[in-house]
Design a binder for these strands. Sequence first.
DNA 1: TTCGTAGACCTACGGTGTAGACACGAGTCT
DNA 2: AGACTCGTGTCTACACCGTAGGTCTACGAA
Lengths: 234, 234
Amino acid sequence: MAKHPVDPALQECDPPPSGKLSRERMLACALEIIDRDGIEKLTMRRLARALNHDPMSLYRYAPNKAALLDGVAETVLDQLAVDPTDADWTAQLRAVARQYRRLVLSHPHVVPLLVTRPLATPLALRPRGTLRPLEAVLTLLTRAGFTDADALHVYRALFALLHGHVLDELREHADNPEENDDLLRLGLHRLPADEFPLLRGLATTLTSYDGAAELERGLDILLTGLNTTLTPTP
Amino acid sequence: MAKHPVDPALQECDPPPSGKLSRERMLACALEIIDRDGIEKLTMRRLARALNHDPMSLYRYAPNKAALLDGVAETVLDQLAVDPTDADWTAQLRAVARQYRRLVLSHPHVVPLLVTRPLATPLALRPRGTLRPLEAVLTLLTRAGFTDADALHVYRALFALLHGHVLDELREHADNPEENDDLLRLGLHRLPADEFPLLRGLATTLTSYDGAAELERGLDILLTGLNTTLTPTP
DNA sequence: TTCGTAGACCTACGGTGTAGACACGAGTCT
DNA sequence: AGACTCGTGTCTACACCGTAGGTCTACGAA
């Protein structure tokens, strides 16, 4: 336990890292590493070391690294609980949205995976855990009286809003690793004043960003907009 | 990984790939490779080969690969022309949105860069070309009577919508590499019928996706929503 | 002329994902 | 009992990656 051969930042995963391997343990550990150090630090070798196994062992549980990353995204997204029996569909969508925001804010480094990986994978081949929320939202909306096509429409609009908002909010977070608005202000003031006059003046405004409120406003706009253009019960 | 020692798909860039190097030539060639083969195929070595130079030469024009990728994203985003003098701010935002959509659809492989890279870079340190559209939109909106803070609000909402929509639309494109809806239908039908009944029925609906119309609807919702909650001239 | 410098090149190092072969224990069938 | 598969883990090896550091060359200024 007390041997420090090399790395200081070489930690292992919560559960005792020896014993039998499993897909769940592998994905959980991978998520831990990503949460701690970011995606590009997740390496087959590092993950194996954290699990106290040979790198090649991982390939018993994932055909390749891309699949492993998909698996991680899946475990995160699978925590999204949609109640398709809720009679108040707008309330349920709001709940899903808030939940999604909280979820990804607790795993910010996973967001690139969530938004990027589906671009490379046809819908039918995506991990099941990824498709489950989609199906749940669809049943919620069809139960509320939407046609299949309109339900799909609403789903798309909702997640477009969510993805867009989350990217906005995380961008904001990247600016404030800690609450050092001096750095932000100084950074902005280094911009040429003739080309970026307005941006330079926004330093204080930028530091006071309320993600939850922002999302709520977005939801208001979206849901009222949907209510006026789409009618659930024809 | 490489099936054969010499790839058949090893092409070079449009302009004569020898002669003096420059940052512009390097970025243009990088963009070409990304457009053709995707991001993960862009390698310092490959790029150098395409430019008929040594890999190390590239480091004269970019401190490292991340900066090079930022440069590519910048060259794409810099093509976004915002007219801050337009008196009709909603019309101008619509124009920007349509332009943005067309732009990224012609460089789909760059989208991960556009949405992902800013998450790792504080705003003040982002490439200038990235900040220019932001400043332009801000001046457009403040000229229209918005306060600085509200202008920022609108900018955020607009680009959240754009990013969200584009991710939606490209996801759809990944499903139809060509217009083979049979593949999609077959793929969907392989899902378990008891767990994904609605999703399986959406094959035909999924193939008829009109991205432009979808974006237009999003803009309608957003802009009317903004008009009711924010007042340009107080 | 000499010198500084910018641009390009070469070598080399430590890292990466993963193919392919092998080791070994637990069942299962004869 | 033996032989057989088979799931699991390990080892070695390969091609490729980003890039630190040094060196060669050509050219403009002194």
